[in-house]
Design a protein around this nucleic acid. Structure first.
Lengths: 187, 187, 187, 187
DNA sequence: AATGAATGAGAATTCATTCAT
DNA sequence: GATGAATGAATTCTCATTCAT
């Protein structure tokens, strides 16, 4: 059993279940079934452990997003697919979602803001720019376009998290369409 | 000079500038130019101080939102006005915005999630329902409608916060329109 | 109303009712209905206040003991009278008794031990020596004689305090006799 | 070197030498040559440490008392033996004696009074009742009988503590006899 | 004289990190 | 490599004392 993995898993579990403040190294060690000293074999410090986990989850998310693109599909279908994958990732991996969401609020040491780094901006930008010909993207800064998609998804994921909403295929379609409407020029 | 106010201000400043984890009571006292004991004259505990600040900022935000409604205006103008006021509040009071956003992520004690309580849901709901006749709201759960407005605003405010966007009248209009498009049935 | 008296009374009440550790100056001030600063008008420090109260109660006790002597009575009657007065003082003024008993355990600053100073040794010694002719005192150091009287009285007072014993005239007589038997040579 | 023992020893030393009030955890740690945190590895809290020490000393005392009984001896010899053992325990372990004596005065949390629990009442009671036939115990409540023995011993131990008395075999015999005289019916 | 808001040194306790085994 | 007992700096909070009003 890989001790490094156990430690990362225990950290994700504890921070999201009992809160960041109460997640001590000794609890992590206990949850991971390793000695306290073992943590310091694999991570320079507690802070570094938390950062490493952040980077790892961010990369995982990026991979999911990127792999959900398919340039052969119809633009809206593709867009809907990305939205669906993100929503499902968020709601099915709530711990990871919440960890990513809250990580940067805890320490001012790490300058990057979540929204800055959470999603792989470039491929999405390229993707959005790709159908300029078939659909008219509103003439807004790309960051704004991006916020108009990303913002609602976070809000919706929180609704699911709060058990105020159950995601169905219909709801996902509707949300995709709403986001689409907000960024596309209707004629 | 009101010491209670100094303490609240110092708390807001420190949590948002150096991070929640590093904001100790002794630092708050130093920043507020009061003795450590003075904090405990006005607040039962550090936790209560943080909570009191949260409640105070939430109420202030609510008042801003509510006062930005005007039922005599054209529905879209009114909607744009609410969006503008929220965006301006967020960006001109970034510390307060960030405090409100992050507060509930860090204390698992308080069950209310920010999105749940940050805005006065009822008046907004009533407001949105008010023009069912003149404009057709999409048939989505009200929470979802709400998320489709609130989510983008948070994302945009973060962009401003990260200095990736400067709010102009034009941008605000565009964002309002985008949100509008996402929740209104176009015919 | 004499503020100094109020403060001393409040101190006696609080130390014996809620304990020494929890008796803070602010509580004393509240109980005495004076401002916190007033305490420092009449007493140099908290420690001095406690010491002054100790001295005052000790003197009061001394007066009671001394006034209970009567050199005209029969020696045993007189002895019994002293025992009775002490027992009644102890049990009827339990707060004062407990304060005197516990005072010196709290601080090592005051070198005098309670037993050393609690009772006016000299008059009692003189008193005991007074009837060497009519009754034979055992040939023990006077401190030991004294301990053989004082010790049981404290133990008995504690029994009353613990509600394990109710003092009746009969019990008091019996105890007096027991103490008497322990220090007098029977022939 | 057992750190738990060092901490208990340091606590006993400091409370009896510099007083309860001034015995802080950091001083205990320094005296015991351990880190402050080590105290909390072995004891839940300062209060619990003090209580654990109390229980430990009480049990030790009980064992000494019980082991000093010998039912084969002559009643008075046996009584004298118990008195001697107690006096020697008290005077040779003055710190333990003072700790036991003062502990319950300072914590109002623990309802048991020292006199109530300090000595193992039952075996002593049985012991005293054992020679009803050969010697006549005065018809007093057993608690009073007990106080007539225990009280003088405490007073005498304090005399030794105050260096006002040196215990010799003769003095011990005399004291035993005095206590004996106070509880036995002489004919 | 009397007050009580303000102070800050000091208390108990925690926990990230080390290091001898 | 792995462990977890030991550490002590840092944290939250208290309270005796001061001093402007």
């Amino acid at each position: 059993m890989d001790k490094k993995e156990s430690i990362l898993e225990a950290t994700l579990k504890l921070t999201t279940e009992i809160g960041w403040v109460d997640t001590s190294t000794s609890l992590i060690a206990k949850e991971a079934n390793v000695g306290m000293g073992t943590i310091y074999r694999y991570f320079e410090s507690k802070e570094q452990l938390f950062y490493d986990l952040f980077i790892r989850l961010k990369q995982k998310l990026n991979e999911i997003v990127i792999s959900s693109f398919s340039f052969e599909k119809d633009p809206f279908d593709n867009f809907e697919n990305v939205v669906r994958n993100l929503l499902l990732y968020y709601t099915e991996n709530m711990r990871e979602f919440r960890y990513l969401e809250t990580y940067s609020d805890l320490t001012s040491e790490i300058p990057e803001r979540i929204d800055d780094t959470l999603l792989p901006l470039e491929p999405i930008t390229n993707f959005l720019n790709g159908w300029n010909n078939s659909f008219q993207l509103k003439p807004l800064p790309i960051d704004v376009i991006f916020g108009l998609i990303y913002g609602p998804l976070v809000a919706i994921a929180n609704l699911v998290h709060m058990k105020k909403l159950v995601l169905t295929d219909q709801i996902i379609s509707d949300i995709s369409e709403a986001c689409w409407d907000s960024i596309i020029v209707k004629n």
